[in-house]
Design a protein around this nucleic acid. Sequence first.
DNA 1: CAAACCAATCTGGTTAACCAATTTGGTCAA
DNA 2: TTGACCAAATTGGTTAACCAGATTGGTTTG
Lengths: 235, 235
Amino acid sequence: MKVEVLTNNEKRDVQQSIIAKLRDLIEYKNLEPGDKLPSERMLSEKFGVSRSNIREAIQKLEFYGILYSKPQSGTFIAEIGRVAMSGMMEDILGLEEPDFKSLVETRILLELKTVRLAALRRTDEDLEALQSALNAYKNKVLNKEDAVEEDLLFHLAIAKASKNSSMNTFMLIITPEIITNFEKYHVCDSNQSFKGIQEHEDIFQAIKDQNPKRAKEMMKIHFSVLYQYCYHSNN
Amino acid sequence: MKVEVLTNNEKRDVQQSIIAKLRDLIEYKNLEPGDKLPSERMLSEKFGVSRSNIREAIQKLEFYGILYSKPQSGTFIAEIGRVAMSGMMEDILGLEEPDFKSLVETRILLELKTVRLAALRRTDEDLEALQSALNAYKNKVLNKEDAVEEDLLFHLAIAKASKNSSMNTFMLIITPEIITNFEKYHVCDSNQSFKGIQEHEDIFQAIKDQNPKRAKEMMKIHFSVLYQYCYHSNN
DNA sequence: CAAACCAATCTGGTTAACCAATTTGGTCAA
DNA sequence: TTGACCAAATTGGTTAACCAGATTGGTTTG
């Protein structure tokens, strides 16, 4: 068979079309929660794509909890109901790549919460991790070096101390995108300033004092520059 | 070669150990951003695991933006710096499966924001989608049928109207988990009540009126039961 | 007649073979 | 000496073959 190399975008389109076909199939066959999907081989033949493509599409739907696979048995529709499944598939198909504004907006939302939770729930261990992350950041800034990474690790340490694994995961997901865009748009320049040190120390102190309100307040100040960028830029 | 069938947990452990080994390798070899990783074949031999396992681990690190693969060329370390990379890998290794409390906490946080953004940014199209989701929900409740799915789709429609693709994605990620747990712990019983209809209509009206403050307020009321469950239960 | 049993078949998961684009090291001509 | 050029090796991606467990339909046995 002719093998062709696809770009990432083409690959995504193929996957999206498979998901759409799966949705149609489920609708057409009136498959209900718990029902078994046709085998991967059959689907690959029916849709005219490779089994790998089918598997990847199924894995994506498994990630969103819509399907689940049992080894040596089959792939099944999760117990979330036909209506919800159909609607969710539609949403997944309509998902766009997040733009920078969405990322920043989400980061601010998450961090104003994680810092509050961290102040409430931090253990002494968390405090040590935060302290060392803060020190690493300070050293870099005082040496006038680029400190974006250390800045970021401090914020991730806060997410970890929040004891909320969902938010922690989401922070990890958006973080690299944020870094890339920061470097692209040179948003981070202000973070190299000495002002950042004081803000970070204020946040750390509030978490140490277990003062959630002040922690959130200090984080808000820390984000004020970002806020402006997010809501007054044309990007 | 002997083929063995692994459980999901065993598979996860293998992947985690590969990620840890990759971290050690990068540390040991002092690989920097932009550097090329050894080839998949070499790594699979070095670590004593199959190439598939290596590929999956690499794909996970690609998902978090730590690595990137160029076809017919190699896998490279992303431009996020050694320190950030090492720290993020550590965080990824330490990630736990989200507990129900984390999920609910995150959902509330997200939805109080998306409903506000939806009120600010909704188009007439969004309004139509919201209206039809609301109608589907009302019909189900009035027929005394289970309406968890329709409830959920209404909330997803709000996320979509918020025009923030990150939050929309995150809502889609946590939604199935939430449903599953709702059914397990029977949290949703209250949603079948007629009270839910009024609350949903209030939220819808606030979005229609483009009144973000009221929209958030109404959502808060809608979540008050959930709030209690989240912060006063022992689970 | 029902239940236990068994072999053929089907399934998702895994491994191995293959493909084409890219690197790379060396060669040869200008 | 240098730069264009080429063929062989390397690489991630893709396809095909294979594996062991699960399912299933029919058969046998009590």
